[in-house]
């Protein structure tokens, strides 16, 4: 038929010594091969691709403006300012010499308990958690660990929707109304300080009245990430965070690096001197996260703890029991 004839012709062309490529181009119905790729052609292609991709780069900022919610201003208080009008830079200094994991009290760690009660943190979240770390010569030390409020926060870097963000005061907060629950921040955090609402978090009746903001994560929301928020709302109002108030040994100091002052509720120290003179360090400094939480080395010796006294009582969530049908999960 028609098609066959063409092939025949081409075969003849071959036999005649005619070039197959030249007659292929101008004959309808002939098989074609992809055209040869010239360098200029390739460059033009990449140019076109770049031009085509440009709207992709421009689009999200435009959308962000359009949605008028690119920022989280409404959910965040005005940054606190010191006497000179400079923005406060919140810090926490934890004196490990005074922390015995509440062994002497015979209770679960009071800082964790107060935090759990004050924030209605769902079980098993311990926004400030006492880790027991083995010492090189045997025995242990206790390390109360809140969110380290990094200045190079891996969690903020990876969040796809800016649900977790750094504030001018140097804290890291989470907007649970925006969080999509992808949990990449949990993978990114090198301190294991992020907690997920795997199920419907229990909410006590009194929490229903709470005015939610990223600085006051009450009530908890299913499918979102939570963590220690450093209680900037409390310190702005003139009270210390729950954990510090509750510490029986006054081991935790809260302060403002900008004003160079810190307090544990009993005494006031000059933050920089206090840090330097006591060889303060930060957790995993080699990770480059630049935490705002400092530690003064120790193992509870100031309150008479021996390194060989191992173990602490497990954290409890008494308020959860008051919520009917509360669901909890393992850590």
């Amino acid at each position: 038929m028609k098609r066959e004839l063409k092939v025949e012709k081409k075969m003849m062309g071959k036999n005649d010594g005619g070039s197959g490529a030249s007659d292929r181009d101008d004959r309808p119905g002939e098989p074609t091969q992809p055209p040869k790729v010239s360098r200029r052609g390739v460059l033009r292609l990449f140019g076109m691709a770049a031009a085509g991709a440009a709207p992709l780069i421009l689009l999200p900022p435009v959308l962000q403006k359009a949605s008028d919610a690119g920022r989280v201003v409404e959910s965040q208080g005005e940054p606190a300012k010191g006497p000179g009008g400079r923005i406060r830079q919140w810090t926490m200094i934890i004196d490990l010499r005074s922390c015995d994991g509440c062994q002497s009290q015979g209770t679960p760690p009071q800082c964790t308990t107060a935090c759990v009660e004050g924030h209605f943190a769902p079980e098993p979240m311990e926004w400030i958690q006492i880790f027991e770390h083995e010492l090189p010569g045997g025995g242990t030390q206790f390390i109360p660990t809140p969110c380290q409020q990094c200045q190079n926060p891996p969690c903020v870097n990876v969040c796809p929707v800016a649900a977790t963000f750094s504030t001018p005061e140097g804290t890291v907060l989470i907007d649970q109304d925006r969080c999509i629950g992808c949990r990449i921040c949990m993978a990114a955090c090198p301190y294991d300080r992020r907690f997920f609402n795997w199920g419907d978090p229990p909410v006590p009746p009194e929490a229903l009245l709470a005015d939610y903001s990223p600085e006051h994560q009450v009530p908890a929301k299913k499918g979102t990430v939570m963590k220690c928020d450093f209680c900037p709302d409390m310190v702005r109002a003139g009270t210390l965070p729950f954990c510090i108030q509750a510490c029986p040994n006054d081991a935790i100091y809260y302060g403002d690096l900008e004003d160079d002052v810190a307090t544990n509720g009993k005494e006031i120290v000059a933050a920089s001197r206090f840090l330097s003179e006591n060889q303060a360090y930060r957790l995993k400094e080699d990770k480059g996260t630049k935490p705002r939480v400092y530690y003064i080395p120790g193992h509870g010796e100031a309150v008479g703890r021996d390194t060989a006294d191992e173990g602490r009582l497990p954290t409890e969530w008494p308020w959860v029991e008051r919520v009917k049908g509360a669901k909890t999960w393992r850590r």
Binding site: P60, Q64, S67, V158, C159, V161, R178, I180, I184
Partner: peptide, 11 residues
């Protein structure tokens, strides 16, 4: 939210 608030910095 990925489209509304997407951040270029996020993997």
């Amino acid at each position: 939210n990925i489209i509304l608030y997407g951040r270029w910095q996020s993997p």
